[in-house]
């Protein structure tokens, strides 16, 4: 009996290899560093249809640009009791925010934890501007500002904060990535490491890279954040999702930046 199972497993493994190899040829990929879990690093863009890609390729067609424009406007709009805008402290975003989206989450010494772009935005609002904080995942202001900040790094390759603290955060993220959750008992790796390039029902699995987030997602008919996407995946596997901007998702985001290292930032991207 084991013989039969072995044979079937070999055939399956064989066909999976062929499929991956065939796809790999026409997808733009970036070389992975030594000891990286992926042999090639590929943006989610490469897994999408020509129609979806075309929406991203043309800034005038990209529906997320409405929020990018909102973010740009908010950047220089004073808000809160301190009467400050982002620009009051940070000046021209094209200079001051360049590289931020390609390197966050970063370690915060004062807070003794890793901070995402969204968290930094709310920290600034609360402490510098004395303004109300924005809700994490669906507030258009938060999405717009996050897109605007990350867009200043568009085309820049993802780089890592190599502090020992961030290494520890990424370790937790790695654990989250490889742990099976939910009634369907699946980990991120089960789909996005082992089977990218293959269809799961009508969806082609990508590597789950986050270099284009926040993204305009056709399925959402709107723009959403990295952590909203993480949450959606966990719901799909019938798991109780972690909290957006909580410790686990922040760690997972930090780890996903490692998985995407070298990949250019595309924010705001368009996905299906």
């Amino acid at each position: 009996m084991m013989k039969i199972f072995g044979k079937v497993a070999a055939i399956v493994a064989g066909s999976a290899l062929v499929a991956t190899a065939a796809f790999a040829e026409d997808r733009k990929s970036y070389p992975a560093p030594k000891d990286h879990p992926l042999s090639e690093i590929i943006s989610g863009y490469e897994f999408r249809t020509p129609e979806t890609r075309a929406l991203q390729d043309d800034d005038f067609e990209n529906p997320a640009y409405i929020l990018l424009d909102l973010g740009a406007e908010l950047w220089s709009t004073a808000d809160g009791a301190a009467g400050k805008s982002c620009a009051s402290c940070h000046g021209d975003a094209a200079e001051s925010m360049k590289g931020i989206g390609a390197s966050f989450p970063k370690w915060s010494k004062e807070r003794n934890k890793a901070i995402t772009v969204e968290q930094q935005i709310n920290i600034c609002r609360e402490e510098q501007m004395q303004a109300d904080t924005w809700k994490w995942t669906k507030d258009p202001n938060m999405l717009g500002m996050t897109i605007f900040v990350k867009n200043q790094s568009r085309g820049m390759p993802i780089v890592l904060d190599n502090s020992p603290e961030m290494e520890t955060v990424r370790k937790l993220g790695e654990e989250v990535y490889y742990t099976r959750y939910g009634q369907l008992d699946m980990s991120c790796a089960n789909c996005h490491e082992d089977y990218y390039g293959n269809y799961i029902r009508a969806d082609m699995l990508s590597q789950g890279q986050i270099n284009g987030f926040p993204t305009y997602r056709l399925k959402w008919n709107g723009v959403g954040s990295t952590h909203r996407r993480f949450k959606g995946c966990m719901k799909n596997i019938r798991a109780n999702p972690f909290k957006p901007q909580g410790e686990e998702f922040t760690a997972l985001e930090a780890y996903m930046m490692y998985r995407a290292v070298g990949l250019p930032i595309e924010t705001p991207s368009v996905r299906n």
């Binding site: 199972f5 497993a9 742990t179 099976r180 959750y181 939910g182 009634q183 369907l184 008992d185 699946m186 089960n190 789909c191 082992d194 089977y195 966990m234 719901k235 019938r238 798991a239 109780n240």
Partner: peptide
Amino acid sequence: KVFGDHTLMPAFYEVDRLSRVAKKFEGKTV
């Protein structure tokens, strides 16, 4: 329990050894 732990396939009649199951599906088999 047939192919080994690496398989992607969910267990369709099993409630043990699962982690963070959504409330709606807690204690239920697929």
